[in-house]
Write a protein that binds this DNA or RNA. Sequence first.
DNA 1: CTGGATCCAGTTCGATACTG
DNA 2: CAGTATCGAACTGGATCCAG
Lengths: 121, 121
Amino acid sequence: MRVWCRRRPPALRRSPAREIFPDVADKWALLIIEALGERTLRFSEVRDEVEGVSHKMLTQNLRMLERNGLVERKVHPTVPPRVEYTLTGPGRALRTTVDAMCGWTHEHLGHIERARERFDA
Amino acid sequence: MRVWCRRRPPALRRSPAREIFPDVADKWALLIIEALGERTLRFSEVRDEVEGVSHKMLTQNLRMLERNGLVERKVHPTVPPRVEYTLTGPGRALRTTVDAMCGWTHEHLGHIERARERFDA
DNA sequence: CTGGATCCAGTTCGATACTG
DNA sequence: CAGTATCGAACTGGATCCAG
């Protein structure tokens, strides 16, 4: 298994990875992954954790993440149904990079806000 | 300056960081940041580097990145005009996390493709 | 509770044309 | 070359309703 994190990864141009990228570089996808973290959450719990996500967006994105093997979906055959979502190994690996991105956001919040003020003037 | 990368960053819910996040967690924004890297590129060079980006998307996103202080825009008053884009400090910091995400994509490409086949069946 | 389907308002995006 | 403006097609996403 190649470890790309050490050196600069290859360009995304014309790469098959480029086809994956849009699924991953998406606001809702990343927020859902971040919300799940190490936990196992029910559909409604994820919805409560991810501020502002609509029912539709949540199902769509959870389905997409499941399709890509980032999230495991476990259905309990009860009534009412209970469906639980958990990050898979690769999903958790991606989460660490999302964490870094969230960390970056918090760290540079001030810089960004100042830059915006300057720009908007 | 708090360093969030060590521990898990705070939740994005109801945070001012959450307002920044959509700008950053965007396909074109991340691809542009990745394309710039440590280099200084002209508008047309960025366009050539970022596969499939339209003129309009590129201007919009470069403007947005500039507004957020992630990219510096330098105009040379020549004719024809020459405009160069470079990542700022925070921009370069973000790029390292984007690198990690690209690395993750390459590393887990196989897993994702297999998961997709399974799911689509 | 979970989730699929439908409708449609609003947005996005690409193409095109035009400016300095 | 870089950038803006405009237009229409395509898509997105939210609301709603129904089903298991």
